[in-house]
């Protein structure tokens, strides 16, 4: 179960504002990346975000560069999920591969305001906000399995161990 406050943003939030290019080839641990999360979009986000908080945004969230730190920095900052009208495809993949839940629920995006309390049950496929329930279709089994294992690398490690 994911429970937290909403951080609300607009359309086309790109990976340069989620994690600026000036840091992409710096050698950085996830905890350090978290300090730069959304730096060029919302400078107060990194300092104020709490574990379980969710990001709510418009269409094409995560467009632009393939940099995986855009997903890694959000996970490290404690973000529980990103709910958007749509996602850019590489960001969508990077999020899943880092164990970050990404959901396309356009009606919920329109309803949720900044700071609102949001609750998500990914297994049941339900998002709750102000007494209303939003159902979302389950993610493909391949994708759910990666998410349950906490990302692609832990998922793969499990598979490699099984193969022995």
């Amino acid at each position: 179960m994911i429970k937290g406050r909403a951080w609300k943003y607009g359309d086309d939030v790109n990976t340069d504002v989620i994690f600026p290019g000036r840091y992409t080839y710096a050698r950085m641990e996830p905890e350090e990346m978290a300090k730069h999360a959304l730096e060029d979009l919302d400078p107060k986000f990194a300092a104020e975000v709490k574990p379980g908080d969710v990001i709510v945004a418009g269409k094409n969230f995560g467009c632009g560069s393939s940099r995986e730190q855009a997903a890694t920095c959000l996970v490290a900052a404690g973000v529980g999920a990103v709910i958007a009208k749509s996602f850019a495809r590489i960001f969508f993949r990077n999020a899943i591969n880092n164990g970050l839940l990404v959901l396309e629920i356009p009606e919920a995006v329109d309803a949720i305001g900044p700071g609102d309390e949001v609750e998500i049950d990914p297994e049941a496929g339900v998002l709750r906000h102000k007494g209303r329930e939003y159902r979302f279709p389950p993610l493909p089994p391949t994708v759910m399995e990666i998410l349950r294992d906490g990302g692609l690398i832990p998922h793969l490690k499990k598979a490699l161990t099984k193969e022995g």
Partner: peptide, 12 residues
């Protein structure tokens, strides 16, 4: 385009 973890998975 793919991510970094995915390239690591491809190497593997």
């Amino acid at each position: 385009g793919i991510g970094r973890s995915e390239m690591a998975a491809l190497w593997a």
